[in-house]
Design a protein around this nucleic acid. Structure first.
Length: 578
RNA sequence: GCCCCUGUAGCUCAGUCGGCAGAGCAUAUCCAUGGUAAGGAUAAGGUCAACGGUUCGAUUCCGUUCGGGGGCUCCA
């Protein structure tokens, strides 16, 4: 029988709480909700527990489940609830936050928990083989780091064993694709604790990928009416004071360095520099829109515990741009950014893309007239509609300085990643007094929009490594081909072939090491090189090559020209095929 | 930053219930005339993350620091 997976997860969480209480009397209970792939429960335990304690909890859960206990709901008064949960400080706090008349409790096997429900009818409906305790983690009570740290136990749970197994398999696949692992295996990048954690070193092969990507990025930006800027890495405190960053972003910035009595800060963002260029001269409405892009490397303080491979680092290069335009232009400009972003994602092979629209935060901390927020939001909404994008609203999720729209892509194994972000800025144009002269000779305040399409080059590289499992499309491959002679006697022809291909701008190398051909093929397969060009007597005589592709397909007797033409065509089209 | 786990050769990992540290891959040298995912031999390679403590003796036990991993918070 089909059971509601959310009910199941939530019910299993209660069972886990009961099991934990049996094994660790005196435990205080936090909350235990259902999540995307299972559930968790937060506890304040009388003693620390580790991964090794999970099997015992799981066993106790199975014992409880097999008891066939009924989940019963009861509605009680606030007063009763307080009595019932006496000594459970977290529960009492929750109860205090609830309205009288809305308090319900659920009981199974004598274990009572404060809960809105709904739940399954019987513990037996939780199949013993469709959940699995995953991990222990610290989690602050109500996500607030000033509150006590509870112990959270995570679990996977699905309505069937098959689904659980499929999920575990996906996780295994994710582990294989882990960009940190692939980065090491393919010798693409590294970080060095002794030289500073969270700072990325791009190795030669990672560098080739980056150059190919950035060259394309620049080309497309010029095609799309952008200009490319280069700005300094540090700026005097005046700049950050004026922009407001020293007020609202100080925690993300590094301590200043002193140069000739002035404090200079390394940049966490590129925007103030772009504004300096804007304010360097007067502007007419005829100049607008201005689209100014920069692959700008910024540095931001991230707490040590949050650093993660290429996904969260302390120095990264944003594919940043600022669009400065008139109110009349804003709608077209936003639509254009979205269109450009979708074009890039699709070229890179991402098919599913979703938008998230964040609106004005509650309270009076935000800047900009209500009218500007409304115009901006309207343009964002129209743009997503125009592109036929699915979107979700994030009410109150915008920054204090403007609404934003983020795009998330789905990768090859179904995970979502945020790459593109587009944010209105009602703050800096004001603070820097940016103006243009309109058709009537009036000085007006322009709109400014920040946008990053790939987000940061570092994070994008990480995401793309996981998406492709390291098997990049030919146009982005650090090494597109490797020439493999079947024996040392053919090294000469291999070198000659390699030189010819290089002359045609292919990224290629000849493997003249003293390994045997089989080992060379294995090595090239491991590096996910798309083409292995095997050459021996026959190829040397005929001036051809034997082509082995990384997907295992093979074509013999290809002429050199035919091969070059084929690769050039794929590169030209940014094809995802081999 | 906080909670839990963790740190042995370039990489992946054994191991020492406290007694001078091991394998495979990679590297170097030599042998090998080889046709689509590992040919063979030899050698070299580690102050067992750092610092402090307990001990006759610590890589092993304890503590601190610094990394790494899973989370919390934040975000590109």
């Amino acid at each position: 029988m089909e059971v509601d997976v959310n009910k199941l997860r939530h019910s299993a969480a209660h069972v886990m709480a009961e099991a934990v209480l049996h094994l660790y009397p005196g435990t205080q209970f936090g909350i235990g909700p259902a999540i995307d792939d299972g559930f968790y429960y937060d506890f304040l335990l009388p003693q620390p527990i580790t991964l090794e304690d999970l099997p015992a909890i799981e066993k106790e859960m199975r014992r409880i489940i097999s008891g066939g206990h009924v989940f019963t709901r009861k509605e009680i008064s606030k007063e009763e609830a307080k009595k019932l949960f006496a000594g459970q400080d977290f529960k009492l706090e929750l109860i205090n936050g609830l309205e009288e008349g809305t308090i319900s409790i659920y009981e199974q096997d004598g274990f009572i928990d404060l809960c809105r429900g709904p739940h399954l009818e019987n513990t037996r409906q939780i199949r013993p083989d469709c959940f699995k305790l995953r991990s222990v983690a610290g989690a602050y009570w109500r996500g607030d780091e000033k509150r006590p740290m509870l112990t959270r136990i995570y679990a996977y749970a699905f309505s069937s064993k098959a689904e659980l197994e499929a999920h575990l398999k996906m996780l295994q696949e994710a582990e294989k694709r882990d960009h940190r692992k692939l980065g090491k295996e393919l010798d693409l990048f590294s970080t060095h604790e002794e030289a500073g954690p969270g700072l990325v070193y791009w190795h030669p092969m990672g560098g080739r990928f980056r150059v190919a990507l950035e060259n394309w990025w620049r080309e497309e930006h010029y095609k799309n009416g952008y200009e490319i800027l280069f700005t300094p890495h540090i700026g005097k405190s005046w700049l950050w004071q004026t922009s407001g960053h020293l007020g609202f972003y100080k925690a993300g910035m590094y301590s200043p360095m002193k140069i000739d009595e002035d404090d200079y800060y390394i940049k966490p963002m590129n925007c103030p520099f772009h504004i300096m260029i804007y304010n360097n001269s007067g502007h007419s409405y005829r100049d607008l829109p201005l689209r100014w892009a920069e692959l700008g490397t910024v540095y931001r303080y991230e707490r040590s515990g949050t650093l993660h491979g290429l996904a969260r680092v302390r120095g990264f290069t944003q594919d940043d741009a600022h669009i400065i335009c008139t109110p009349e232009q804003i709608e077209d400009e936003i639509a254009e950014v979205l269109r450009f972003s979708l074009f890039m994602h699709k070229t890179l092979g991402f098919k599913e893309i979703k938008a998230y629209l964040a609106t004005k935060p509650e309270g009076d901390g935000s800047v900009g007239a209500q009218e500007m927020w409304d115009t901006a939001l309207e343009s964002l909404r129209k743009a997503v509609d125009k592109e036929g994008l699915a979107y979700e609203m994030d009410e109150g999720g915008g920054a204090f300085y403007g609404p934003k729209i983020d795009l998330k892509i789905k990768d090859a194994i179904g995970r979502e990643w945020q790459l593109t972000t587009t944010q209105f800025d009602f703050n800096e144009p004001e603070r820097f007094d940016m103006t243009y002269v309109d058709a009537g000779g009036q000085r007006k305040r322009p709109y400014m929009v920040h946008r990053a399409l790939l987000g940061s080059i570092e994070r994008f590289f990480g995401v793309y490594l996981e998406h492709t499992a390291g098997a990049f499309p030919v146009w982005l491959c650090p090494e597109q081909a490797v020439v493999i002679p079947v024996a040392p006697a053919f090294d000469g022809y291999a070198k000659e072939l390699c030189a010819t291909l290089k002359a045609s701008s292919l990224r290629v190398r000849a493997d003249l090491s003293d390994s045997r051909m089989n080992a060379k093929i294995r090595e090239a397969q491991g590096k996910k090189i798309p083409y292995m060009l095997v050459v021996g007597q026959k190829e040397m005589d005929e001036k051809t090559l034997s082509l082995r592709m990384r997907d295992g397909r093979q074509e013999n007797g290809l002429t050199v020209d035919a091969f070059i033409a084929r690769v050039k065509d794929l590169v030209e089209k940014k094809s995802l095929e081999l």
